[in-house]
Simulated assay, not measured.
Amino acid sequence: MSVRRGRLEKLLVVKKAEKDQASSEYQTAISQFETEGQTLYELLKKKEQLDEVLQVSLQTGIPIETLKQQQFFMGNLEKNLLHQQKKVSHARAFMNLKEEKLKEQSVECKKYEVLDNKEKLYWKQNDLKVEATFIDELSILQYSQHTNR
């Protein structure tokens, strides 16, 4: 009794490879999103610290030239924050797209696994029927030879 390696099993190997590829792409997208998110977090933290320093400086007194520099730096920081927020949004959308692709590949792979298991079960049952038929024929042959003596 042998289990046949059918065409569905070969397709299943291809589908699993596609699923693994999609999983790898999804993990890369997650990593990219985390990197962009961490950069945004650091920029926000830097802005918060700059705001605190500016508030303390305004309380204690600050030269106009220093105030202008801090305002200029704050403006640049705001531009960087907006740019980074767009990058985070893009990375999130890309990650979600890869997640959907991974889900689709997982469903496809599962379908082929089910079909492959059904095919293996069919062939196993078929082999059992052939074996039972062979045993029946053998026993009939032995019985007929035994009764002819």
Rank of each mutant, 00 (worst) to 15 (best):
L50M: 06
E52G: 00
E52M: 14
L54C: 08
Q55K: 10
V56F: 13
S57A: 15
S57D: 04
L58W: 13
Q59F: 08
Q59I: 08
T60M: 10
T60H: 06
T60G: 06
G61H: 03
G61C: 06
I62C: 10
I62R: 12
P63T: 02
P63A: 12
I64D: 08
E65T: 00
T66W: 03
L67K: 07
L67M: 03
L67N: 02
L67W: 13
K68T: 02
K68N: 00
K68G: 01
K68R: 03
Q69T: 00
Q70E: 09
Q71P: 00
Q71C: 12
Q71T: 03
F73R: 10
M74Q: 12
M74F: 12
M74Y: 12
G75H: 14
G75T: 07
G75N: 14
L77H: 05
L77M: 03
E78S: 02
E78Y: 15
K79G: 04
K79Y: 06
N80M: 08
N80F: 09
N80V: 04
N80S: 14
H83C: 10
H83L: 15
H83F: 15
Q84V: 05
Q84L: 14
Q84F: 04
Q85M: 15
Q85L: 09
Q85F: 07
K86P: 02
K86D: 11
K86N: 07
K87A: 11
K87N: 03
H90C: 13
H90W: 01
A91V: 06
R92Y: 04
R92M: 08
A93I: 07
A93W: 13
F94Y: 10
M95S: 04
M95K: 10
M95D: 00
M95C: 04
N96Q: 07
N96H: 02
K98R: 09
K98Q: 12
E100Q: 14
E100P: 00
E100T: 07
K101F: 13
K101L: 15
L102V: 03
L102G: 02
L102C: 01
E104W: 09
E104T: 06
E104I: 11
Q105V: 04
Q105I: 06
S106T: 00
S106H: 05
S106I: 04
V107I: 09
E108H: 11
E108P: 00
C109N: 13
C109S: 08
K110D: 11
K111C: 11
K111H: 05
E113I: 07
E113P: 01
V114R: 06
V114C: 01
V114E: 05
L115T: 00
L115F: 07
L115V: 03
L115Q: 09
D116T: 10
D116L: 12
N117D: 09
N117I: 15
E119F: 03
K120Q: 11
K120Y: 06
K120W: 08
L121I: 03
Y122W: 15
W123T: 04
W123K: 10
K124I: 01
K124P: 06
K124T: 08
K124A: 09
Q125L: 13
L128G: 04
V130W: 01
E131M: 14
T133W: 06
T133H: 07
T133K: 15
T133C: 15
F134I: 06
F134E: 11
F134N: 02
I135F: 14
D136S: 09
E137R: 08
S139K: 12
I140K: 06
L141M: 03
L141I: 00
